[in-house]
Design a protein around this nucleic acid. Sequence first.
DNA 1: GTCTATATACAGATAGAC
DNA 2: GTCTATCTGTATATAGAC
Lengths: 206, 206
Amino acid sequence: MSRIRARNEEKIIRAASRVFAEHGYAATKTADIAELAQLPKPNIYYYFGSKENLYRAVLESVTEPLLAASEPFEQHADPVIALTAYIRTKLMISRDYPYASKVFASEIMHGAPRLPEDIIARLSEQTRTLSDKLSQWMGQGLMEQLEPRHLLFAIWASTQTYADFNWQITMALGKEELDDTDYDQAAEVITRLVIEGCRVRPLSSL
Amino acid sequence: MSRIRARNEEKIIRAASRVFAEHGYAATKTADIAELAQLPKPNIYYYFGSKENLYRAVLESVTEPLLAASEPFEQHADPVIALTAYIRTKLMISRDYPYASKVFASEIMHGAPRLPEDIIARLSEQTRTLSDKLSQWMGQGLMEQLEPRHLLFAIWASTQTYADFNWQITMALGKEELDDTDYDQAAEVITRLVIEGCRVRPLSSL
DNA sequence: GTCTATATACAGATAGAC
DNA sequence: GTCTATCTGTATATAGAC
């Protein structure tokens, strides 16, 4: 793998993430990706073979930040701290990786027809890990007994909505784009819903 | 407007809602809509003129159920009852009108490039009405003081996710499709988050 | 008013020069 | 290894028969 190749592949992936996120897979023209990447169109086919291959490469590349969100669950044993940090991290990912979030959202909304099996497996495993942790806390009396997966769905949806449905959010808030204050307010509301709503208590209360 | 015309237009709209929801605007072929509607393809162009016109007609037709969700806010003065009913209604809409929800979600995710101005206006007005009502309850001390629009975003996201990201939900729950029990559990979790999380109190507590 | 057969345009992909 | 010029399939849209 040459220097120039690595550099061009990265430029293409970056440009493709954005165009796929903004227009969706089918509406995306490889010519637009090439233009944004400032490379001739055939380069894309030379490096990736086909539009679909490139799209799969994009899906792989955007998976990391999304999976990394669960770190707070591994780092903190205390449910109040872990859940608070998790919500904040999920919101920061929506802010910093909006293309990753949208490409995934679009893919999943249409039934994940092009999502590689290994990514599905990793997402499933993460879901299991997270819901097991929640069940454990519930069993210890550190939070109310609820179906943990529905709680996860609520957290995922209400944090990712700031990336996926950014248009609606900015419109409703009457802004061009969101600033740090908006994300702080979002974190405050969602954290309150989860912590107070599930009566989550710190480890020290045991 | 002839009988046969009205009937065919409705068949086309219904088929189009489904195909647009499942594949997105760009990936949808008018031939697939025609096949599902059991009509010849040129009929679509005869009745609607273009794929884009048909899509706009679909957007108009799916707007009603989505706007109707706010009825509980008008019917019930009590915040506990109104919010509980609102969450339930939103979930039932996700269950009963999944195509409407997905077509809208896809449109908004890509920046609403084809959403008619009048629909935007009606959605904006509803947002204002709902957040005003929440502010009023907060002012009366019937619930915690929070940015009401962020609370709305959380409710919208966590209820619509059951339609928009149905694939992920069913996969996480290990099911082919959701049943009434799943929606009951979802309602229980989301209602608890909102009512307990915002410390919403009934009118009678005043 | 309705539908079969066809034109047209666009975008994914590649052959071949450099 | 890289890119210009071109091919080709596919899907929107319509002309014209019934």
